[in-house]
Computed example of a mutant assay.
Amino acid sequence: MYPPFVGIQTRRFNLRLLNDADASFILGLLNEPDWLKYIGDRGVHTLNDAKAYIHSGPLAMIKKYGFGLYLVERQEDHMPVGLCGLLQRDGLSWPDIGFAYCAQFRRQGIAFEVAQATLEYAQSVLGLTKVAALTAINNEASIGLLRKLGFAYERQIALTGQAETSNLYFKTL
């Protein structure tokens, strides 16, 4: 099993475990137009839904696999800006990197900085040698980020429970 998560730091950001106090942020993020368009409606429409999502989603995955999605917050003021981490999906033999940021925090180099640190963590702490990534077919911003991070396109894939096919990428660490 993997060591307990103690956080990831970048030059400007901290990644930490989500908690109930993050419910308002999660409620907003999961209802942003791009989240709904590219990731899908997770049925999170109230603060209680957001708390349930935190516990049944990211925290449950961390408990089960030793990794999951983490809250990304600015170091200077602890302002939450998004989520990033590793996910273990049915149908994929390798964990995949996942990320989502509030619209006002995009185009500032945050996703690249945090994803690089997450991949370093995957290699140095978790001992992973390969990481997958999934994007919606037409999510050009995420596709561009994955290319910049050195991921290679593999093929389109339909995972169990997903209505749409996704692009599948891999990166050897």
Rank of each mutant, 00 (worst) to 15 (best):
G66V: 14
K51L: 09
L145N: 10
S56M: 08
Q116A: 01
A23D: 04
H55P: 00
L87G: 02
F25D: 11
T160L: 07
I137M: 10
Y38K: 01
A122Q: 02
C102F: 09
F25I: 08
H55W: 08
K148Q: 15
A158F: 04
D41R: 09
A52S: 15
L18P: 03
L128C: 02
R74L: 12
L30R: 08
L149W: 11
L86V: 06
H55R: 13
E120D: 12
G28W: 01
A50I: 13
E76L: 05
E32M: 01
F99H: 13
V131T: 14
E120I: 15
L27N: 04
E154T: 10
S56W: 03
I62V: 14
L18Q: 03
K63L: 05
A52T: 15
A103V: 14
L149P: 06
L159A: 02
R74Q: 14
N19V: 01
Y101W: 15
N139W: 06
D41Y: 03
K63Q: 15
L18A: 01
S124M: 08
N139I: 12
I137W: 03
L17R: 10
L126A: 09
V125F: 07
D34S: 11
K63H: 14
L86T: 10
Y38L: 01
I62C: 08
G91C: 10
D49E: 04
I97K: 07
R89C: 07
A122W: 00
R89G: 00
G82A: 12
N139M: 01
S142F: 06
K130P: 04
L18D: 06
L59F: 08
L59K: 14
S93F: 12
P33A: 06
D41N: 14
P58Q: 09
K148R: 15
F99V: 10
R107Y: 05
V125L: 03
P58R: 04
I39S: 03
Y70H: 08
L92V: 05
L159W: 02
F25E: 10
P33R: 03
T160M: 07
W35M: 05
S124G: 00
L30I: 00
I157Q: 12
L15R: 09
P58C: 06
M61S: 14
N139D: 15
R107F: 08
R74S: 11
R89M: 11
A52K: 14
P95K: 07
D20L: 02
M61N: 11
K37C: 03
K64N: 09
